[in-house]
Design a protein around this nucleic acid. Sequence first.
DNA 1: TCACAGTGATAATTTGAAATTATGAAAAAT
DNA 2: ATTTTTCATAATTTCAAATTATCACTGTGA
Lengths: 315, 315
Amino acid sequence: MKNLSLKQLRYFEALALHSHFGRAANACAVSQPALSVQIRDLEISLGAKLFERGARRARLTSFGEEFALRVRLILRSVDELSELALASRDRLVGRLRIGIIPTIAPYLLPAIIGNMTRMHDGIDLQIRETLTPQLVEELIEGRLDAAIVALPISEPSLTEVTLFEENFVLVRPDRDAGKPVPNRKALREMKLLLLEEGHCFRNQALSFCNIASSRPREILDASSLATLVQMVGAGMGVTLIPEMAIAVETRSAPVSIARFSAPQPTRTIGMIWRKTSPLSKQLIEISEIVRQSAAALEPCDQALAATPDTLAQQP
Amino acid sequence: MKNLSLKQLRYFEALALHSHFGRAANACAVSQPALSVQIRDLEISLGAKLFERGARRARLTSFGEEFALRVRLILRSVDELSELALASRDRLVGRLRIGIIPTIAPYLLPAIIGNMTRMHDGIDLQIRETLTPQLVEELIEGRLDAAIVALPISEPSLTEVTLFEENFVLVRPDRDAGKPVPNRKALREMKLLLLEEGHCFRNQALSFCNIASSRPREILDASSLATLVQMVGAGMGVTLIPEMAIAVETRSAPVSIARFSAPQPTRTIGMIWRKTSPLSKQLIEISEIVRQSAAALEPCDQALAATPDTLAQQP
DNA sequence: TCACAGTGATAATTTGAAATTATGAAAAAT
DNA sequence: ATTTTTCATAATTTCAAATTATCACTGTGA
């Protein structure tokens, strides 16, 4: 037994409307026999007559009327499907799940969320903040659509786009503000406070100092940059933070910021997503929004650049 | 651009469920390429990707999930269509519009309605009581599904089935109860009360008496058998009524009933419907119900038969 | 009553869509 | 590196659906 088709339902609706095979066929832009046969097949597959064929007109049986009610609803729902597709063709729609590493999130998120909701109104933006390996795993498993991390990730299944480069700056107690900026070697002898194991920023800082991350040191690990800065303010040592964090984190502690000379420590922040993601087009667009959001934070950087060696920031 | 089909939606649903082309195809009892191509075509015609093809599994995009929600509802509605058809295949369903002539309706209707609702629970039975020409017209126009009338109708477009034969009996004032039953000739000289013009029963009665319906007579036409009987009870004349009406109509008037001898006046009651009606099968079944409903009224007839010449009915 | 127009069903044929089998390419697993 | 898994693609076949042509039935009007 053949299955009923949408085409049959559309023919049926037309015939129910026109009560006339010829006119209904015309409305469907097909020949009369085409419609006749489809209606007949529909009735056969239903096992019930839908129309009563009179000499002058075809009228619905009571079953046909019952049927027509439901068919109308179904066809309208199907039409809505196409409309839905049309509406969400270029516009980003629905849920978008983005992961961000903790050493970026607090500083970039407000701007990102603001710009995203402004440019893609009605989007359901879900943010997940956690460490890079976790983000990559969730991304690969399809539990995230994209992630903002430090590059490179070097997962072959992921696309990476660079968002921006950011320098690290030295954070030291206020009383050290005037002192010369230590070089990498000198830094190695100082009490360097770091984030706890797992943060990519920890390894990036260590690698700048040429310290093997495995090497045992008398360091107190913190779980956030905010804590690190507070620890520095309390005179427990020095630390590095991404320049993006300066504005937020140094406001509430008696610390001074110093930019390193020449071979500045730096890292590349980028966005990653599955190569197979059908959102690629939109994600590239989103990466541009993120890039602009980050650039809008630059003024603070400019200020730093103006006083290349040291810069004190007071609460 | 090709239109989307139910088949595509079913394939889509299967793939959304299994997240795997091979298994989804298997579930649909088709080959994997068949399903792949249909999904691809669906995505093309929508202009949006529904699935993200990973190496290990195909997962829904967020648009795909939105889509799946709607598709699920649509497919369930379509499935219901078939179920609806199945349910109403043999069972009579929905509205059934039956017309009945006034000289039958009051006596047969209670039984018909009772039996119909008992045997076809949930049916929407609509009854129309009016004169034969009106019923035939409405039937032909499709405003009625069937009618119960006196045969023959001789409309080539209508099917007629006989339900039963019913005799006419003489109704005369109580005081005449003992008198001999008049024959047709004697009846012609009596004051015969009749229904008003238009009732088939009027003509049937006249024709029994061999009186041309056009011939002017000093008769007072009534609009119902009930009125006729009351008029007889008031001594205004005699009348004929169908035997089916005896029980109901003679209960509240001082009249006596007399059955005619040998060539009893009679009429054939039948059911008619459009030859083209797809309800034919069910209507035949219904005619059987009506026939049985009428037969169940017989006991009254039996009583008459036991006292062949006269029978007095008192309130 | 007889042709005639209107209407829908049916048949033969063509067209087109969707299935199958076979095969290829990419990624994952071994 | 090799094998396996998985999906896409191509060529072909199969089946459904369209078209044109024609017939049968109905009701209408001359």
